[in-house]
């Protein structure tokens, strides 16, 4: 009764970029959790990065529009909070893309135990270890602002969460 397989749906949705960081898509970010094929159609399971992330409304709209464009009928989005999103779900590919884009990717989430511990955040531009935090928050809740003491460039760090 389902025209499209779960893999088909994942493939269609994997092109949707994160509205705030367009170099990575919602699957690589770990926000797209699952697709459930049931009696009424296709339920896309989505989880927010932060509870108040303002991009979620846009991502939901993008998902429905993308599926409609691909001729998928009976699609809906379900937001789940359990298990809570963690930066551990970000793929290695996503972390490389972030670095290339100029955002230092998160270290392992174990550093979350000490929210702003003395971790070494490498400069994504010159790879220097000599960096300093300027602000715990940047343009979005998920990032902090750093500056490199060697190349002097400011950069964003995607915090462990």
């Amino acid at each position: 009764m389902h025209v499209h397989s779960k893999d088909d749906i994942f493939r269609m949705l994997s092109v949707i970029p994160d509205p705030e960081i367009p170099v990575v898509n919602i699957y690589e970010m770990g926000m797209l959790r699952d697709v459930v094929l049931d009696d009424t159609g296709y339920e896309v399971i989505l989880t927010p990065t932060y509870t108040g992330c303002p991009a979620m409304g846009m991502i939901e709209a993008d998902i429905l529009a993308t599926l409609a464009h691909n001729g998928v009928k009976g699609a809906r989005v379900k937001m789940v909070m359990d298990p809570a999103w963690t930066t551990d779900w970000m793929s290695g590919v996503a972390k490389d893309k972030l670095r290339t884009y100029g955002i230092a990717p998160p270290l392992h989430s174990s550093c979350n135990n000490d929210v702003f511990g003395h971790n070494i955040i490498k400069c994504p531009r010159c790879q220097s270890d000599d960096t300093v935090m300027l602000s715990r928050f940047g343009a979005t809740a998920c990032k902090a602002l750093y500056q490199c003491n060697d190349c002097k460039e400011p950069f964003e760090y995607f915090k462990c969460h």
């Binding site: 927010p48 932060y50 509870t51 108040g52 992330c53 303002p54 602000s135 715990r136 928050f137 940047g138 979005t140 809740a141």
Partner: peptide, 13 residues
Amino acid sequence: LALTNFALDMIGR
């Protein structure tokens, strides 16, 4: 930045 980010956390909650 910090306080408005916290405000956002609270709205989400």
